[in-house]
Design a protein around this nucleic acid. Structure first.
Length: 312
DNA sequence: TAACAGTCAATATT
DNA sequence: AATATTGACTGTTA
């Protein structure tokens, strides 16, 4: 961060970005404490446009007009019938209440700590994104479908439980743990597929972060935050908390901040294998398959904060 | 370790 | 249903 800070001072201002007389890197704010000098590989999942982490973006951000930003955000949200909850959870990684407070009583930039500035940087980034509304609308739709799926990811759950219980009763012996009969868990359901697609977004491949020279990064960051509409790569896509498929495309984001995603690893062919087991399915095979299935579900659940979205 | 900042979850309002 | 308010809690800072 400190190095980033330097680059801003040396390059950012000369570039005449927005407001130049920006933050005196208040000794206190540019805390270097917590983060060991070690190039601690902070969660890649948080990389945003120009391959910078949101935190780097915040650190290098020029002074932003929080009031103007919130005003604009409110305008856009209301104009498009987008709620604070959706916006907060998918764009800012905050709850509805926090968003409400933030939008209603934005603190002036200079009174905010780095942490406190983050939401505003995200908002600005979002405002700059030409497809911001479009994306949010997508999320909205996805959520809707998600709910339908839930009522549906619920019926199956019940079946699943029944099977478990039945199996447990049947093979009472067998290591005790409920051995599950091969459920025909047809994972190919529309729900999963749909979400996955929407999650693709622009399908921008992971940015070559390591390559970017600091200078360019700094410039890019500032540019990205400039109110003017510039070809913004893609927003940090903060949370997207629910979107199971969200980051599936990149495969990144292993328990990073809001967007915890099941590592691609988990994708054992479980589900499918379960259903199509050759007739010679020995009990052992079945068990293995079921185990995989269960693991698969657990991993999926791990990516969903809301228990109501758990699939079992 | 008190003061502060940022959030959340619960719940009050609209 | 969406938005506003607020007490409690966590992590920071001085």
């Amino acid at each position: 961060l400190s190095s980033a800070e330097e680059s801003v001072k040396s390059l950012g201002e000369p570039l005449g970005l927005q407001t130049s007389g920006l933050e005196q890197p208040q000794s206190s704010e540019v805390s270097e404490g917590s983060q060991p000098s070690t190039p601690l590989p902070l969660p890649l999942s948080t990389l945003g446009p120009s391959g910078l982490s949101i935190q780097e973006m915040v650190a290098m951000s020029p002074e932003l007009d929080t009031y103007a930003i919130t005003k604009k955000v409110k305008e856009v949200l209301t104009d498009n019938n987008l709620g604070q909850r959706l916006f907060g959870e998918t764009i800012l990684g905050l709850t509805q209440g926090s968003v409400s407070d933030l939008l209603a009583r934005p603190k002036p930039w200079h009174k905010l700590s780095l942490k406190g500035r983050e939401p505003f940087v995200r908002m600005q980034l979002w405002l700059n994104d030409p497809r911001n509304v479009e994306k949010l609308m997508d999320m909205k739709r996805m959520e809707k479908k998600g709910k339908e799926c839930v009522s549906e990811s619920r019926i199956r759950r019940e079946l699943f439980i029944e099977e478990i219980q039945a199996a447990g009763a049947a093979a009472s012996g067998e290591g005790g743990s409920p051995s599950v009969p091969p459920s025909k868990a047809g994972e190919g359901d529309s729900c999963d597929g749909t979400e996955g697609d929407a999650a693709m977004e622009d399908g921008k491949p992971a940015g070559p972060r390591s390559l970017t020279p600091e200078e360019e990064a700094a410039a890019a960051a500032a540019k990205a935050l400039t109110p003017s509409h510039s070809p913004i790569p893609k927003d940090p896509t903060t949370s997207a908390a629910e979107g199971p498929g969200t980051s599936s495309s990149t495969g990144l984001g292993l328990f990073g901040f809001p967007e915890t995603t099941p590592s691609a690893s988990g994708s054992t062919s479980s589900s499918s294998s379960t259903s199509r087991n050759p007739k010679d399915s020995s009990l052992r095979k079945k068990k293995a398959a079921n185990l995989n299935n269960i693991i698969h579900r657990l991993e999926k659940a791990a990516s969903k904060e809301d228990p109501s979205e758990w699939e079992f």
